[in-house]
Amino acid sequence: MQRVNMIMAESPGLITICLLGYLLSAECTVFLDHENANKILNRPKRYNSGKLEEFVQGNLERECMEEKCSFEEAREVFENTERTTEFWKQYVDGDQCESNPCLNGGSCKDDINSYECWCPFGFEGKNCELDVTCNIKNGRCEQFCKNSADNKVVCSCTEGYRLAENQKSCEPAVPFPCGRVSVSQTSKLTRAETVFPDVDYVNSTEAETILDNITQSTQSFNDFTRVVGGEDAKPGQFPWQVVLNGKVDAFCGGSIVNEKWIVTAAHCVETGVKITVVAGEHNIEETEHTEQKRNVIRIIPHHNYNAAINKYNHDIALLELDEPLVLNSYVTPICIADKEYTNIFLKFGSGYVSGWGRVFHKGRSALVLQYLRVPLVDRATCLRSTKFTIYNNMFCAGFHEGGRDSCQGDSGGPHVTEVEGTSFLTGIISWGEECAMKGKYGIYTKVSRYVNWIKEKTKLT
């Protein structure tokens, strides 16, 4: 034993070699072989497995989906700052455009905790909710729209109204504003409101030439003092309507412009014939205590009207009353817009006519005020429907199939267009061939041609 100890002390290297040989010859039971080890760690190889990531292109799944990435790591994937920024906006807080917040056709661009709407022409605001041009839906104005110097929408209202708090709607500024039905039992019968379409306001006024200088022999019209197929109006439903009495009662109609003036057809009036105007009328054979009678003290036909040349060209006249009318729910003026808007309103496509005229061709006159909704007829169809001249200051309205029309005794009465609950004068009943005849239409004086003249002559002093 002493000898062994001496050998170990003198030859430590020998001992180490012996131990190493023993270990190498022993069977290893701690580690699995290569094949079995792979069965336990069965993990798919990654895209760049075996390579240094710093030297390969980034992978979106590896960089940002398996674990949260930084902007720089995302930049490695896209290799483009702009594309990385677009991805980053949604990656950080989701897609803010998912709810489609942009209105009126706006395009949404996502941002971090926010979004941006790219608005089409005519709109602005956070969600493109603000109209900035009158060309689109009248700028959301209830009545009139004008573009300011910086191309912003400025709404306005006709006389007797003021802008509401929203700067879009119009509200009454006087007790009985024009064009409004205020009798409670008839307010439910107000005709369907007309909503502004998209309009090209630059070209809204037709490029028409008034044929002022045409000389033409007097034409022989049949029954051209021209509501057939209409309905009984309720008291106060058309408070701007008046009836004219002269040699015979209810020979023509008219509309209240203001307390002192009536507008009617020029062919209705004769110099030297006494005319009485009755406002607030409903049943011409009954006294309903809503009527107001006034005498006409002055007749002003349009300066281009000449019955000797043509009885229905420039067929418009103004009547001055001896005493002002007292405005109330049964006696209310009709609204008159400017030339541009009167023309736009007419193009809405349908209007209402009213009167006490004959209820059928050569038949009896109506006792109760009649009204009828009539569609506008395109000019080409209008011209083809008659052998008589249709001037540019006239328009056609009615039904091709016949059966409904204005008729004798309705002449001078109103053709009105309702705009968001307020009625505007767009025409004056003038003439036609018979009444409600198939293929024939009622012919009306186009008020847009005469609004400046009306307003100039009827100013209240």
Rank of each mutant, 00 (worst) to 15 (best):
P235S: 07
P172H: 05
C128K: 02
T16P: 05
C407L: 07
L376G: 03
L325D: 01
F78M: 15
G254Q: 00
A307M: 11
I454R: 00
D200S: 09
T84M: 04
V243G: 03
K168W: 10
H302V: 01
L103R: 08
K146T: 12
F78I: 13
L372N: 11
N48P: 14
C157F: 00
H303C: 03
N306L: 05
Y441L: 12
K137N: 09
S25I: 15
D338A: 07
V416G: 05
V30M: 14
H415P: 00
L14E: 01
K339C: 09
W356P: 04
V56I: 08
E86D: 09
M8N: 13
K347C: 03
G125F: 01
C108K: 02
G253N: 01
E66V: 05
V92M: 13
A366K: 12
N295P: 02
S99I: 08
V451D: 02
L189H: 11
T29C: 11
T215D: 06
T342I: 02
K146G: 05
T225L: 11
K152Q: 10
F360G: 11
F71N: 14
I454N: 01
R191G: 13
N5I: 13
R83C: 06
N100M: 07
G413W: 10
E82G: 15
T332R: 13
F224H: 10
A397D: 01
D150F: 08
F121N: 09
S182Q: 06
S182V: 10
Q167L: 12
N283G: 07
A207S: 11
E323V: 14
R294L: 00
E281T: 12
Y161C: 00
I112G: 15
F31V: 15
Q57V: 10
N42G: 05
Y330K: 05
A337I: 00
H34Y: 11
S25D: 05
T194K: 08
M6T: 13
H302T: 02
L369W: 09
N295Q: 04
C128E: 03
T271I: 09
K68G: 09
E35N: 12
K455M: 06
K274Q: 04
V326N: 08
L319A: 06
T218S: 12
L372A: 13
G442F: 05
E323M: 10
L24A: 10
K68C: 04
R449M: 14
P175T: 09
H289N: 13
T381Y: 07
W431E: 11
S148Y: 07
T215A: 08
A436F: 07
L425V: 01
F78P: 15
C102K: 01
R298I: 00
P324V: 04
V30W: 15
S220K: 09
E116V: 14
F395M: 02
G254R: 00
V377G: 02
P44F: 04
H415E: 00
L163P: 04
G94H: 10
S350P: 12
K168E: 11
E76V: 15
V263P: 00
A266F: 02
Q408L: 15
H415T: 00
Y312R: 10
E288W: 05
L20A: 04
G58R: 10
I297V: 09
L318A: 03
L346H: 05
F144E: 00
E231N: 12
T342V: 03
V451C: 08
A164D: 07
D249V: 02
L189K: 10
Y47I: 11
D249R: 02
Q167P: 03
P175C: 03
F176R: 05
L321P: 01
N59H: 09
T133L: 08
G50V: 08
A233S: 08
V195M: 13
R404N: 06
S156K: 09
